[in-house]
């Protein structure tokens, strides 16, 4: 059980984490979702007492992290797979961690076996691929056989097999009754892994509840429709009770409708369609909807410039169009 109460962290002028309150319960995988720069890693570092909060507190199984005598036996964490000395072997890396938390050196070999790194235990960690490094990090998290586990973006950069392995592992750990808290910026990944979701944007809590509910809300999807007779179509669609907003492409976006419904409406009115596309809201769009643009996109790039005449208009960022044109 992780309890976060009023957690706040300020870096000079930016508020990285803003009065965050939530609970992570045992027995299920809880996803920690937010775009890059939302404050997920900062929050996790504060859970581990690595960063000092400006306000608020975190309790793990009822006590602050530093009040646990052997904290690695209570909380196992993988925050960054690159946190290893490249010239130290995987086995020695785990052995010093085991020693630091009062476990026998043989425990290192047990967890290496568990993550399937026995064959490379003596190799320098610097030679590991990202997938192997990730496994080594997970071995470190499992070292103390802790009831609480925390993973920061564990599937980033992994191949499909590695992703599936981690997903299965996390669900298995939760099924054993452990508290599993895992962050990601990908809603699609969290939808597959997590039962509960804690969603943050710009350091603030956006939603906290079952994953299914959030996914439904987030993909309260819309239909993009283009037609040479768009001005005739819009009143027809509105008359059927759907909301319509103009789309930058010159078409219209209909919310709350399916492509079937719009297609039938258009056919009934005898209107030609050039495009009819189900637009599934991305996580970023969901954030936009829920928070009214309260999202900090750290990926950045220069601010949007006025469109160059003649150049194709860029599509809306972060939108995935499924191919349901007819």
């Amino acid at each position: 059980m992780i309890e976060v109460r009023g957690l706040t962290k300020r870096y000079r002028s930016t508020l990285a984490v803003d009065d965050l309150t939530f609970e992570v319960r045992p027995g299920v995988v809880t996803g920690f979702l937010g775009p890059n720069g939302a404050g997920k890693s900062t929050t996790m570092r504060m859970v581990l007492d690595l960063d000092r909060p400006d306000a608020g507190e975190v309790r793990i199984d009822g006590r602050p992290y530093r009040d646990h005598a052997r904290p690695m036996r209570t909380v196992g964490a993988l925050l960054d797979a690159k946190w290893v000395h490249p010239n130290r072997s995987a086995r020695r890396h785990l052995q010093w961690m085991a020693a630091a938390t009062g476990l026998p050196a043989t425990r290192a070999d047990e967890v290496l076996e568990l993550v399937g790194l026995t064959a490379v235990a003596g190799k320098r960690a610097g030679t590991f691929s990202l997938g192997m490094a990730q496994r080594l990090g997970i071995a470190g998290a499992l070292l103390g056989d802790p009831p609480v586990l925390m993973f920061d973006e564990p599937v980033n950069g992994l191949d499909p097999e590695g992703i599936r392995w981690i997903r299965t592992l996390m669900q298995g750990l939760a099924a054993e009754g452990r508290t599993v808290f895992v962050s990601s910026h990908l809603l699609s990944e969290m939808a597959l892994t997590a039962t509960e979701l804690v969603v943050i944007g710009r350091g603030r809590l956006i939603s906290h509840g079952p994953t299914a509910a959030f996914v439904d809300g987030a993909s309260g999807s819309s239909v993009l429709v283009r037609s040479p007779a768009i001005t005739d179509l819009v009143p027809v669609v509105q008359a059927a009770g759907f909301g319509v907003t103009p789309d930058p492409s010159g078409g219209a976006r209909v919310t709350g409708a399916s492509t079937e419904q719009i297609g039938e409406l258009a056919a009934a009115a005898g209107i030609v369609l050039h495009e009819l596309t189900q637009v599934r809201g991305s996580l970023e769009e969901a954030f936009m909807q829920i928070t009214g643009g309260d999202v900090e996109f750290t990926a950045g790039g220069p601010p949007p410039r006025p469109p160059v005449p003649g150049a194709p208009a860029p599509g809306p960022a972060g939108t995935h169009r499924s191919e349901v044109q007819r």
């Binding site: 690595l50 904290p71 964490a77 690159k82 946190w83 961690m97 630091a100």
Partner: peptide, 15 residues
Amino acid sequence: EYRFGTIRTTFQAVP
């Protein structure tokens, strides 16, 4: 330890 981030693992083990 600061260069490779292991200082954080160290402080995790010994807060």
